[in-house]
Write a protein that binds this DNA or RNA. Structure first.
Length: 492
RNA sequence: GGCGCGGUACCCAAGUGGUAAGGGAGAGGUCUGCAAAACCUUUAUGCGCCGGUUCGAUCCCGGCCCGCGCCUCCA
């Protein structure tokens, strides 16, 4: 089942296939490491993760490259404010970024490219641009891309720049650019700023040149897919195209994918709006990493996602339903045999799940057949009409679902513990939800012990004591479920 | 101003030219020592409003209203 993905460049749905017939080469813009990642960043990375995982599920080989922008104006500014070198400043945010990706179960790309480790390649590219007259240096030593050298500019974002007069809205007097819309390739060093001494002068790279140089180095002149947040379409990706294609005369990427921004409570997330959340903020409030993951991927990537706390609770409950079902299926005992209705239900779910994702990664649609299957199988189990042969058909469907969604297996304890430890270390203990600390205080062993005690009490028909234990556990966020196969407990 | 997106039940959210997936929440019931879980029933004659095309439109076309995004650093 091949993926049909909307291509921003053509404005159409197109089948995504590797141009070399073997490995899909893709480049996705990564973070600028000047602060902790927020949920908007992660929506994009998560949607790219869904893409990755689905492609792998269809058997495709991938070479996915992500850049890390570890030098830019904000980094230089923040590092200076902290009184440290950028090389000291960025690692903590790089580490935090990967921790957050792990928490959200975002797979690592095949390669990570760091800007500061690829300065030479950027300089080379600027030299090539200069050689064909597409780059020029201004008196202060900065280099600019001459937009007039690339007539196709605007093809991705469908912008017609002809109506934009030089100087109309753009500050032209800052540097002596030939045209106001020419963009920086290389920024000359100002006193005290981080800079590299290179063939084209002392300075630091512009943001756009980074991606052109690195995608070329890691993936070649032309590759299959370029992805990123919708805001990057213009000017970032447009500039990448101009830089790369001016030199190579080949399409930078055949296919472009842009993930729409998420809103928070119906507004664009912004610090000034007071609706700005990092992943860590949410974990410390007591939301599970899996719920955040599911909430951020359940709305298809081309639609705005309105992020709300209600949405997180809903995701939490939906995951709970899946996990309960999975536990019932794997821990229950079934008679040998098959139920034809369940056999076909499993096949149907599998087919519809894959078809939904193949259709422009429609994650919302992909969930439906899985939940249909859950209901049908639960009903069959209630009636004793689910057999080992059925279980063996259903489990692979859940496995495929989790190969993409990755929320059924409960790995939520670690990210939360990690976030709490981080908060304590960072002096943000006040941000940790009190009930979270209370829950952390109860160990699995302690829970098991109480559960056993309750089982004994129940056998003695001492229901008062049994209920007392259950309530006690409930107060600490532990829910008990009695069944004929024993007691299952879970943390809220 | 330019470009673009959306308005589907209490909430979130798919979707199709032939009469509305799924999730969450609520209500009633079955089961249970009681719960929880699970299951069953239930919650849009209706998909922003008004026209048009059509045998038939939520889905196509036009207009309008509302919300949002991008156009500057931004995932």
């Amino acid at each position: 089942m091949n993926l049909h993905l909307f291509n921003t460049l053509s404005g159409q749905m197109e089948e995504l296939v590797p141009m070399d017939g073997q490995t899909l080469r893709m480049y996705a813009c990564g973070p600028t490491v000047y602060d902790y990642g927020h949920i908007g960043n992660f929506r994009t990375f998560l949607q790219v993760d869904v893409l990755r995982r689905f492609l792998k599920l269809t058997g495709m080989k991938l070479r996915h490259v992500m850049n890390i922008t570890d030098v830019d104006d904000k980094i230089i500014r923040n590092a200076a404010a902290a009184g440290i070198a950028i090389g000291e400043y960025t690692p903590r945010y790089v580490d935090a970024f990967f921790e957050d990706l792990d928490a959200l179960r975002v797979e690592r790309p095949e390669a990570i490219a760091r800007a500061t480790e690829n300065i030479d390649r950027m300089v080379e590219l600027i030299q090539k641009l200069a050689a064909v007259g597409a780059a020029y240096q201004t008196d202060d030593g900065s280099w600019y891309f001459r937009l007039s050298a690339f007539p196709a500019y605007g093809k991705l974002s469908k912008k017609d720049l002809s109506g934009m007069e030089d100087g109309a809205r753009v500050d032209v007097d800052e540097y002596e650019k030939d045209s106001a819309r020419d963009f920086a390739l290389w920024k000359a060093a100002r006193p005290g700023e981080t800079a590299w001494d290179t063939m084209i002068g002392r300075g630091r790279p512009g943001w756009h040149i980074e991606c052109s140089a690195m995608s070329m180095a890691y993936l070649g002149d032309s590759f299959d897919l370029h992805a990123g947040g919708e805001d990057l379409m213009f000017p970032h990706h447009e500039n990448e195209i101009a830089q790369s294609e001016t030199v190579t005369h080949k399409p930078l990427a055949r296919h472009w994918m842009h993930v729409r921004f998420l809103l928070v409570d119906g507004r664009k997330m912004a610090k000034s709006e007071g609706n700005f959340y990092t992943l860590r903020d949410l974990l410390l409030k007591g939301y599970k990493a899996s719920a955040i993951r599911l909430a951020l991927i359940s709305v298809p990537y081309r639609h705005q996602l309105n992020f709300t706390f209600d949405g997180l609770i809903e995701a939490t409950n939906a995951i709970d339903r899946l996990r309960t079902f999975y536990a019932r299926l794997t821990q229950g005992t079934f008679a040998a045999g098959e139920n034809p209705a369940m056999q076909s239900a499993a096949k149907k779910a599998q087919t519809e799940f894959m078809a939904a994702l193949a259709n422009d990664l429609n994650t919302a649609e992909a969930r439906a057949p899985i939940f249909d299957l859950v209901r049908a199988a639960n009903a069959a189990m209630d009636q004793g009409k689910l057999f080992t042969g059925d279980r063996d058909e259903i489990l692979p469907v859940l496995k495929d679902f989790d190969a993409v969604f990755d929320v059924i297996e409960d790995r939520d304890a670690e990210p939360t513990r990690h976030a709490i430890a981080w908060a304590q270390q960072a002096g943000r203990t006040a941000d940790v939800a009190p009930e979270l600390l209370a829950r952390q205080s109860l160990t699995d062993d302690a829970i098991e012990k109480l559960v056993t005690e309750r089982t004994v009490a129940k056998k003695q028909r001492n229901f008062a004591r049994a209920d007392q234990i259950r309530n006690e556990l409930a107060e600490k966020g532990v829910i008990l479920e009695d069944s004929k196969d024993g007691v299952r407990w879970k943390r809220k």
